[in-house]
Measured scan of single mutants.
Amino acid sequence: MIINNLKLIREKKKISQSELAALLEVSRQTINGIEKNKYNASLQLALKIAYYLNTPLEDIFQWQ
Rank of each mutant, 00 (worst) to 15 (best):
T30L: 15
R10Q: 03
S16V: 04
I3A: 10
V26E: 03
E19Y: 09
I34G: 00
K7P: 03
K48R: 12
L43D: 04
I3K: 14
Q44R: 12
T30E: 08
K13P: 01
E58Y: 13
A46T: 04
E19I: 07
L8R: 15
Y51G: 06
N40L: 11
M1E: 06
N40W: 10
T55A: 07
N37Q: 08
L57F: 07
W63N: 06
L47A: 11
E58S: 12
M1T: 11
I60A: 02
K13R: 13
K38A: 11
I60K: 01
F61N: 00
I34C: 03
I15F: 09
I34S: 01
I2M: 11
E25K: 15
A46F: 06
K7T: 07
L45K: 00
Y52R: 04
I31P: 00
E35M: 03
Y51S: 08
E35F: 03
Q29P: 06
L47R: 13
S16N: 05
A21M: 02
F61R: 00
I31E: 01
L43A: 07
L20F: 05
E11S: 08
Y39E: 10
L57T: 03
K48V: 04
V26P: 01
E11L: 12
E58G: 13
E25N: 15
K13V: 08
F61H: 01
A46C: 12
G33K: 15
L45R: 00
S18V: 11
L53S: 01
Y51Q: 09
Y52M: 11
K7N: 05
I15R: 02
Q29R: 14
L20D: 00
I49E: 00
Y52A: 13
N4E: 03
P56H: 06
N32E: 15
E11R: 09
K48M: 09
E19H: 11
I49M: 06
Q29W: 12
K12L: 14
A41R: 01
R10C: 13
K12V: 08
I60M: 05
Q64A: 14
Y52E: 06
R28C: 12
K48Q: 09
E11H: 07
N4W: 04
S18I: 11
I31D: 01
P56F: 06
R10N: 02
A41Q: 03
Y52D: 00
L45C: 05
V26D: 01
A50P: 00
L23E: 07
K12C: 11
K14C: 11
I15C: 06
L53R: 00
I34R: 00
Q17S: 05
W63E: 05
K7L: 07
N54A: 12
M1Y: 14
I60L: 12
R10W: 06
K38I: 15
N4T: 03
L8S: 15
N40V: 15
L24D: 00
L6V: 06
N37E: 05
I9V: 11
K12Q: 15
M1N: 09
Y51P: 00
V26K: 01
K14T: 05
L23N: 08
K14N: 14
L8W: 07
N4G: 04
K14D: 08
G33H: 12
N32S: 15
F61I: 03
E11P: 01
I15Q: 03
K36P: 01
A50D: 01
P56L: 05
W63A: 05
N5P: 00
R28K: 13
K36N: 15
L6D: 03
D59Q: 13
I3W: 07
R28A: 14
N54K: 11
T55L: 05
V26G: 01
T55I: 07
Q64N: 12
N40F: 12
K38T: 12
D59S: 09
E35T: 03
R28D: 11
I60Y: 01
I34N: 00
V26I: 10
E35Y: 02
K48H: 05
S18N: 13
I15P: 01
I49F: 04
A21G: 06
E19M: 11
A41C: 15
N37K: 08
G33V: 07
I9D: 01
I60H: 01
S16Q: 05
Q64G: 13
N32A: 15
V26S: 02
I49R: 00
A21P: 00
A50Y: 04
I2C: 14
P56S: 08
N32H: 11
D59C: 11
I34A: 02
I34Q: 00
N5R: 08
L53P: 01
N54M: 09
I9P: 01
I31H: 00
A22H: 12
Y52Q: 07
Y39P: 03
K36T: 14
I34H: 02
L24T: 12
T55H: 06
Y39L: 15
Q64S: 14
A50K: 01
P56G: 05
Y39A: 10
I15H: 03
Q44T: 13
T55R: 03
A41F: 12
S27P: 14
D59M: 10
Q44V: 10
A46G: 10
S27I: 04
L53Y: 02
R28T: 15
Q62I: 11
Y52S: 05
S18G: 13
E25P: 05
W63D: 05
Q29K: 14
A21T: 02
F61T: 01
Q17D: 04
T30S: 05
D59P: 02
G33E: 14
S16I: 04
Q44N: 12
L53E: 01
L23G: 09
K13N: 11
Y39D: 06
P56Y: 04
E58H: 13
Q64Y: 09
S18M: 12
I2K: 08
E11M: 13
K14M: 12
S42C: 05
T55G: 03
K7F: 06
N40I: 15
Y39G: 07
L8D: 14
A22I: 12
K13M: 14
A21C: 04
Y52F: 14
L47D: 05
L53H: 02
F61D: 00
W63V: 07
G33W: 13
N5M: 06
M1F: 13
L45F: 08
D59Y: 08
Q44K: 14
E25Q: 14
I15M: 14
N54T: 08
P56C: 07
L20K: 00
I9R: 01
I49T: 02
K36E: 15
L43E: 07
A50W: 03
A46K: 11
N5I: 08
I34E: 01
I34D: 01
E35K: 02
Q44M: 10
T55E: 11
L20Q: 00
T30W: 11
K14V: 05
I49L: 08
Q64F: 07
L47F: 07
N32G: 08
A41K: 02
L20E: 00
A41T: 12
S27W: 04
L53V: 03
Q29E: 15
F61S: 00
N32L: 09
L45D: 03
L23D: 06
Y51A: 09
L24R: 00
S16R: 06
P56I: 04
N32I: 15
R10F: 06
